[in-house]
Design a protein around this nucleic acid. Structure first.
Length: 222
DNA sequence: ATCCCGACTG
DNA sequence: CAGTCTGGAT
């Protein structure tokens, strides 16, 4: 293994040893993962679960079920996830897209409808789907090898001295994908572990004493 | 740069 | 009480 790869893979090994497999994404079907990816935008997952349960309770966690609701009705049901008016429109846009693609009754089939690069472009064209949401859907709903970047990734790897902190999403994603083997399993687990570390330890005000990566962090605080 | 927004932590 | 949460559109 090249040293260039190892600097970006070592944190993964360390985090996996410390925290164990995270078993992401917490969703039963590809469609549920897609809905969760939109609902969790800037929102704690516990709040997303409530919104998803609200839809499940009335068997509305389907493409057609969501499209059949009025914006106001849908917004009311997903209220616990916050930004409910915005997200109601975004969920409908996502479902309308799936219907257009002819996969409303079997959303996971989206995977085989186009090559990865084109699928990503199509998702990015959907209202409410930005880079992180698109990549989360590709990786966690469709099992395609795309590395998901988020605010935790930027913060953690900047503190580790591997990023400067000003890089755009695409640059950070390329940093990982150019160096790591293109394995769905690895990308899935790595991002999940990054989120865990970012939430529990490498927070805005970090708890460096509890960090599994402390030994390779240039400027630990506290 | 600002708005969207409920639910929870410290 | 302020801060934070698996962002994206305008």
């Amino acid at each position: 293994m090249k040293a260039r790869t190892d600097r970006w893979l070592a944190p993964y090994r360390r985090l996996l040893a410390a925290y164990g497999p995270q078993h992401w994404w917490p969703g039963e079907t590809a469609f549920e993962v897609m809905v969760g990816a939109v609902l969790t935008q800037n929102t704690a997952w516990v709040n997303v679960e409530r919104a998803i349960d609200n839809l499940k309770r009335d068997a509305l966690l389907t493409c057609r079920g969501i499209l059949a609701l009025s914006d106001a009705d849908l917004a009311e049901r997903i209220r616990p996830a916050g930004y409910f008016n915005v997200k109601a429109r975004r969920l409908k846009a996502l479902c309308a897209f799936l219907a257009e693609q002819g996969v409303a009754d079997h959303p996971v089939a989206l995977r085989d409808s186009a090559p990865l690069a084109e699928l990503r472009q199509r998702l990015l064209a959907v209202h409410g789907v930005g880079e992180e949401t698109a990549d989360s859907i590709l990786l966690y709903a469709l099992d395609l090898p795309v590395f998901v970047v988020d605010a935790y990734t930027r913060r953690i790897f900047t503190r580790l001295g591997l990023l400067r902190g000003e890089e755009r999403y695409a640059a950070i994603q390329r940093a990982f994908m150019d160096r790591l083997p293109a394995e769905v399993r690895l990308y899935n687990e790595y991002h999940a572990l990054i989120v865990h570390l970012g939430k529990s330890v490498c927070r805005p005000r970090p708890r460096c004493g509890a960090c599994p990566l402390l030994h390779r962090c240039p400027h630990p605080r506290t």
